[in-house]
Amino acid sequence: MSGARGSALAILRGQIERIETAEVAHQHERVALGHSEADAALKGGLARAAIHEVFCEGRQGAAATGFVMGLAGRVCARRPLLWVRQDFSEIETGALSMSGLAELGLDPRRVVMVRAADVESALRTSADALACDALGAVVIELWGEIRQFDLVASRKLTLAAQGSGVTGLMLRMAAQPLPSTAETRWMLRAAHSPPGSMWSAWGAPVFDAELLRNRHGPCGRWIMEWSCDECQFSEPSTYPQPVAAAPAHRPDPALLQQRRAG
């Protein structure tokens, strides 16, 4: 009797596993960012076929745009990028400049821009685009707190991304993080250029990136530099690394491992 039940349970477990793995078929693909500590925290890199959120304060919009552009550049791998943006964010932080994009070492030829009038059409367009497997990534740029983007909307985007293998990057300017189904969530600030004399040339874009949420690993905070020539993130060479603050809402990963071992 118990043997029969056990085998039935095993069959069911197998079925559930199959359903889940079918859903997350693309999820094993990860793209290394180039910053070793961040890649370690992300278990090898940024997951494809998932949604990643990048938040920033209003005036840090350009820094966050650069970071998202970097992520998109890593993930896209010569496939087209669809950039969906809300009209209002262009007024606030300026239009995405293709010359600037080329200066970052990325390819402006593969960028198709959707100028959505409002949040609803931006979200709908993004859900549609995320289901199209010809794209490398879809960036959704939204300004301010958004009522319409709730868990259901977020889940819709995640499912679309999982189905097609397209990566969704949400650029949320002037917004506070809310619960969502995103794989990772970042808080972005601009970081100083490496110290030097006041009049010296300053270097590549530097970000102060804080990983607030990571579904499959620890969080952290790093100074990341985008190297335009290699098209990847790296540790700034002449910059003192700040000590990552221990995330308050999660137990320390080191402690957790000790406990498991012990």
Binding site: G94, G100, C228
Partner: peptide, 13 residues
């Protein structure tokens, strides 16, 4: 090559 970006990423109309 090896120059930082000379043009901004976001440009005001």
């Amino acid at each position: 090559e090896s120059e930082p970006p000379l043009r901004p990423l976001r440009l005001f109309d």
